[in-house]
Amino acid sequence: MLRLPNFEVRTPERLDEAVALLAELGEGARVIAGGTDLVPNMKHELFTPRVLVSLARLPELRGIGDAGPGWLRIGAMTSLADVAADARVEQHAPALAQAAGLVAGPQLRTMGTLGGNVLLDTRCQWYNQTYFWREALGFCLKKDGTLCHVVEGGSKCVAAASNDTAPALMTVRAELVFAGPDGRRVTPIDDLWIADGIANKKCGRDEILVEVRLPHSGSGHRGAYGKLRDRGSIDFPLLGVAVKLELNTEDAVADADVVLTALQARPVRIKRASELLRGVRIGTEAFLAAARGVAEQAHKQAHPMPNIPGDADWRRAMVPVYVRRTLEAAATRAGPVHAV
């Protein structure tokens, strides 16, 4: 078995204590939630924190409930299994419930948290490897090296955002509540991302994600998640597609949103999705045609690179197929779209 580097674990019982601890410990500390991303990464010596600050005992980070009128809150430490099974999440953000239910496999969804998923490190076949392997390669730009191997001689890290819940949260305009040394801050999840594979999130090392807030949705809300992967379980996405449709009382689209992940360093919103679908009634030929239009737009916009395993050309060819199928699934409440 690969060994974990040595570290110490602290388990603060209050949020302010945890924040203070992070500030005090500085660079050598890292937050651990379920550990399902961090622990393998530590075994690969991608991170070698001296101290892990566990969030396991912070009550503010637990549970799903109301966050004032019109808002649902999901504590950052809520397990993905709980997110996937929750009736309120299913009602207000079906795409999120579906995405959470397709992360990894059952054991990992029990340990893995929503907060950890939002803050998941980017992934790359040249990076998520053991120290020995990376050293034999001569390392890469993201960690310990100077070159990018995705594009030969490349000088920019394009490791892929690979968290399934992120695009789903973006389609429902979720907000993130962070606690840091300067108090709380609330930020729309859209504003979290940077197009840089080395660190694709605007989030300080000393900040703790407390909760994720979702606006309540109305009866016209439809959502679905489509996930491409080799196996029916365990694997990270080779492509993730989150879809939202807001229908009016005539079942025509009033608003739509499509966000893709596992392409490049940040999730990608498909342009003109709402414009192409607006006014079209679901269940009609016109809807299928509009869905095809969005799929074409997605194909134009999406350029998967050989950053994660799998044939990048095939991943690109799957973009329009999965966008179209996920739109249809959202309309008919038939999500998720997932082979096997």
């Binding site: 053991t130 034999a136 694997d235």
Partner: peptide, 20 residues
């Protein structure tokens, strides 16, 4: 292309799960 194993782990070497 470097002669390195393409993915020496049970995540990258895809053996079918029960659902596959």
């Amino acid at each position: 292309r470097f002669g390195l194993h393409a993915g020496p782990s049970l995540l990258d070497y895809r053996i079918p799960t029960s659902v596959d």
